[in-house]
Amino acid sequence: MHVHEINPKKTLITLTIFVIVIIVGLLTITNPRLEYKLTPNETVELVVWDDSYVFPYELEDVIVGAVDTVILIDIRNTFDFSRGHIPGAENISAVELLSEDNIKRLKKLQKEGICVLIYGETQLQANGPWMVFRQLGFSNVKSLMGGYQYYALWKDNLADSYGDDGYLLGAADFDYSDIASNVNIDENEGDSEKTSITVNRRKKSTVAEGGC
């Protein structure tokens, strides 16, 4: 007498359990709510080749309402926001921006081709959140060069900032090796003459062009 003959259904029962475990496992896979759309390598490409910044002088069209395909989002805290912000900006913190409702809204905006411009006190503050949203696949999220500080400096004559490049980041202000090798401590002023930076400035977009 073989073990199978004691309970002839043993094999089928075992296999049924096996199949049920796999099916239950497949059904209960928890898909994370948010998933990276860009692979790490694509993210590196993004930050090396990115061109999705908005130049401060481009803001003027947005503020006067000539371009209605841009939404401004201020990710600073409410206190800073209440002290001054770019006209028309909404105050949503970076973490809040990841909430279900806001993600839904961002998706809708992306479909409609509306650009979401996020800014912080400095460009650095908006940099991380901007990268997260780009990695989540929101190609319509852009970051304001120079941040709010630069805007506040130029807010009365924003268009004139076209000729200024104080908002440019990511470039060397000094010829480090030159400075580091001959420093005279007593010259405290330190002639920090800027080396001429070659700026590939985007042409000022006409009002009609607008948007992203």
Binding site: T43, Q123, N127, L169, G170, A171
Partner: peptide, 18 residues
């Protein structure tokens, strides 16, 4: 570190994600 903090910050975000 980089010229300023933007590129370094971007490197940080990628490293953190990884």
């Amino acid at each position: 570190l980089s010229d300023d903090d933007i590129k370094a910050d971007q490197a940080w975000v990628i490293a953190k994600r990884m």
